[in-house]
Design a protein around this nucleic acid. Structure first.
Lengths: 194, 194
DNA sequence: GGCGCACTAGACAGACCTGTCTATCCAGGG
DNA sequence: CCCTGGATAGACAGGTCTGTCTAGTGCGCC
């Protein structure tokens, strides 16, 4: 007993955790491979055997962020009863992240800000944005919107705008509060009566 | 005659034009000094004599963008009669830029995406964001909003959200149209009756 | 003519980047 | 026992980055 399968995480897991922390905090262009492997305690050859290139490591980092957000939002939405409440719920759930002092903006917006057209980050960001759009559109449809695509897109605009404001402006709670007001008024105007 | 004061632009002007083009199209981190000076046809020593560092060149580039937007918006707004129309006018005027195929997102969002805390780009972006905020807040006040600060912030969220969507999504006109709908509904809800 | 100044070309330093390669180690399974 | 496979450290190649420095050029103005 005490086989102590203390199981130090695998090299792949440590690399991803290190990449997630450093890439998010400082940026995918700013952080070099050497810092990622040094922080992970992993040899450089292991990184290239596992991921093949820095670009693919960035893709894996963004896919991990996507999966984590999906899980957090999907599970969090169970606490909300109606589709309409769930829409506001998305902003509540993500707003909790946004107000974290370590929040540095949407990782997909940041990673693609200076990406070349074919970069892995771009396709990872496309996937994420499609997921957000579908989430809002589906909830809008369930809430009985007459034009759920349009409402979904408007919600995504607010979602993006809040994320930008919370990264770049001083008072973050202010930005989140204004965004929530915007969402509630939008839902009232769109869903109550036609 | 024909003194042909063809007046080739000064080294400073050529550097700024080159930086504006390359930094905006490809990103301030991606484009190196060598490419800026080569495209400008200017010696490296001249760049460092004129601006002192790459960081200050980036600041000058962003200040130039800020001044150009200020001029374009301020002049464009003369065509709109009421404060309320002017608010929508800001989105019309900037929307024209957003739909340009060379649009690559808000230069301040992109330049600061991976900037270190003390970088020149951060303070230039702070100045720009304060200008946008004041513009919307002042117009909201003139339009008779009961809480112009709140309305101004909500408008900035929409403004930022449109810019993000137009950079990252396929169909740009769709994003702009949704944003304009959002703005009009917001104004109707906020300004008509109290 | 001659002075000063803005500019030019380009080498150079020193650091950092991604990615490859060698050589070694160690644990688990047959 | 030995073999395999994943992991290790670290040198290395070849390139790029910012910023400095030297040396020289052309032009306006006194």
């Amino acid at each position: 007993m005490a086989a102590v399968t203390n199981a130090r995480p695998s090299a792949r897991e440590r690399l991803l955790a290190s990449a997630d922390e450093l890439f998010y905090r400082e940026g995918v262009h700013v952080v070099g491979i050497d810092r990622v492997i040094e922080h992970a305690g992993v040899a450089k050859a292991t990184l290239y055997n596992t991921f093949g290139s820095k670009d693919e490591l960035i893709r894996a980092y963004l896919q991990g962020r996507h999966a984590a957000i999906d899980k957090r939002v999907t599970e969090g939405l169970n606490a909300y009863a109606t589709p309409r409440e769930k829409i506001v719920g998305v902003f509540d759930i993500q707003g909790g992240r946004f107000t974290n002092p370590e929040y540095r903006g949407c990782p997909f917006v940041s990673a693609t800000a200076e990406a070349m057209p074919g970069a892995a980050s771009v396709s990872a960001a496309d996937d994420y944005r499609a997921w957000v759009r579908d989430l809002f559109t589906d909830l809008s449809r369930q809430a009985g919107a007459t034009d759920p695509e349009s409402l979904g897109q408007q919600l995504q605009i607010i979602y993006d705008g809040i994320a930008v404001g919370m990264r770049m402006d001083r008072d973050r709670t202010e930005s989140l509060a204004a965004g929530l007001t915007l969402v509630r008024n939008l839902l009232a105007a769109t869903l109550d009566q036609g």
